[in-house]
Design a binder for these strands. Sequence first.
DNA 1: AGCTCACTTGCAACAGGGTTGCAGAATATT
DNA 2: AATATTCTGCAACCCTGTTGCAAGTGAGCT
Lengths: 136, 136
Amino acid sequence: MDQLRETLKGHQLRTTTCREDVLSTFINKKNALSHGDLEGALGENYDRVTIYRTLKTFLEKGIIHKVLDDEGLRYALCSHNCSEEKHHHDHIHFKCSACGETNCLENLHIPAVQLPEGYHPENFNLLIQGVCPKCN
Amino acid sequence: MDQLRETLKGHQLRTTTCREDVLSTFINKKNALSHGDLEGALGENYDRVTIYRTLKTFLEKGIIHKVLDDEGLRYALCSHNCSEEKHHHDHIHFKCSACGETNCLENLHIPAVQLPEGYHPENFNLLIQGVCPKCN
DNA sequence: AGCTCACTTGCAACAGGGTTGCAGAATATT
DNA sequence: AATATTCTGCAACCCTGTTGCAAGTGAGCT
């Protein structure tokens, strides 16, 4: 419990029950979550709008990051210490077409890509879709 | 003009003015387009719903493919001969944070990734964000 | 050209995602 | 405990995307 407060404080955020609950939901379920998932889990306690704003705040402060998907955005915890100034992510996301879960493969890094002259990359996002070990 | 009809016919689709216009829009603007882009370009001539259904049909028939994005889905022409049965894409998409355009880098392929035991990948999607040569 | 059938379109209506403004409530600080 | 600041809930709104149904259109046939 105190760990949640610490995390929020460390990102210059007031500790509120909504933020604690959203953060602990991300920690408990390990996969990437959509706004709808959170609304399903916490919607009886908090307003839709509050959950949206919490996600937006967490994004800006570097607590979570966006996970691309072909059917709607999701969010996942930043494993390393991202901050308001800088997100650094080059890990891979895997979406299982059977169970629908999307997970970060933290240990794998996106291989380097040789871009043509003139391109200045800042951010990489690799989504792999297929079947995960659980559903295999 | 006839080329459009050929393309549609080749995918077992009736030639209608809406489909011709959507297809030629994709051919003229070379970058990835969202539904909103198409609605902006053709919305006075066709209903929103018709454009949605045209996109869905084109997707199924393998004329266009989805392009992931952190702020809404886009679509781009399939360069190779994709069919209803099989899409094959492993090229890279580059989104410019300055001009907002997303383009396919047809010549570049997504490097191989060694996944842990048990993962069966089927589909790869790499989005690189940064600054493109035009905006450099 | 005209007929027919199957496919396509437009309209209305809906569900969901996401945002904004504002008043009231909760938090951190003194 | 009082204050300034920030957060929350509510209402309202816009955009995205889908479905059902009736009317319209395309393609093949005679």
